[in-house]
């Protein structure tokens, strides 16, 4: 196996891809909730991605991503046998599981892919796991078989009702709490706005909430400070203090604002790359 070689590639739907990559140094210590930073090639930016899984014995890690930005679109051009220029990790603190008996994991959109290792990790650790997976429509639904195997109860909801029940994840969560489920913790993984509402529901019912945050960052070791966010009035770095934080302490409005900082530039880049080259720039 070459360094950071892609060993398998599987399209989960039109937009979401599951890669298994050789990265023994990362895999040997990886834990659910941790992330890596990768670079596709010499010209690529460094982007953080939460690991969707890993196999310490085989020395591989799993990445599930949606091709939404320049780097992830470039990643889609890579095939089995191709290699990433760089993958560093595991970064961030692993998700805390100690003392938990029953949790509800709520995943939104691509966030479901990142919620998968958390749910499975907790399930494997003997914690009772309810999981709500929410998507816009049936075409975007992913990983239902994996989730079924990795949770105690799985609930599928879509915004338009084309798969599972027609409702938002937050409504399902309210339902499950109202039905008497006694959760020690609610874990939210997805778009910031969805995590915000999920954590607010948890708070309303006096349940601890954990949100797995993503942010712009460069090094992933605390050096750049780009990923700082306001947690309970204090600045914390997502890369070293997180990525999991108590959802009731997160300043969601600030986080949502900060997470869109480069969106104009990204939009331009996206069009720029594809218009010029169809996604691939360097063939050497």
């Amino acid at each position: 196996m070459k360094r950071f070689e892609i060993l398998s590639k599987r399209m989960l739907n039109d937009n979401i891809t599951w890669l298994v990559i050789s990265a023994p140094l990362v895999a040997r210590k990886a834990k659910p909730g941790q992330f890596i930073i990768l670079r596709t090639d010499e010209y690529g930016e460094r982007i953080p991605l939460t690991m969707a899984g890993h196999d310490s014995k085989k020395g591989t890690i799993d990445l599930i991503y949606a091709a939404v930005g320049r780097t992830t679109m470039l990643m889609d051009q890579l095939e089995v046998g191709d290699c990433f220029a760089d993958i560093v990790g595991p970064l961030g603190k692993p998700t805390e599981m100690e003392g938990l008996k029953k949790v509800c994991v709520v995943g939104g959109g691509t966030g479901n892919a990142l919620a998968y290792p958390l749910a499975k990790g907790m399930h494997d650790a003997g914690i009772e796991v309810d999981m709500i997976t929410g998507f816009k429509n049936k075409d975007l639904v992913i990983l239902q078989d994996e989730f079924k195997a990795g949770t105690d109860n799985l609930y599928l909801v879509t915004d338009d009702g084309t798969a599972g029940e027609k409702m938002f994840t937050t409504v399902k969560l309210e339902e499950l709490i109202a039905a008497g489920n006694d959760y020690d913790e609610i874990v939210a993984v997805g778009p910031p706005i969805m995590m915000k509402f999920t954590c607010e529901i948890a708070q309303k019912h006096g349940i601890k909430s954990i949100a797995s945050l993503t942010a712009y960052m460069i090094d992933g070791t605390g050096m750049c400070g780009g990923c700082r966010c306001n947690i309970g009035g204090e600045d914390k770095f997502v890369c070293v203090d997180g990525p999991d934080f108590d959802g009731s302490l997160v300043d969601w409005d600030e986080l949502i604002q900060r997470s869109a900082y480069y969106s104009d530039q990204e939009k331009y880049d996206r069009e720029h790359v594809c218009r010029l080259t169809g996604g691939v720039r360097y063939n050497d």
């Binding site: 140094l25 990362v26 040997r28 210590k29 560093v88 595991p90 992933g220």
Partner: peptide, 10 residues
């Protein structure tokens, strides 16, 4: 050894 974060990977 680049991409090797001591304290986390090893």
């Amino acid at each position: 050894e680049t991409d090797a974060i001591v304290g986390r990977a090893i």
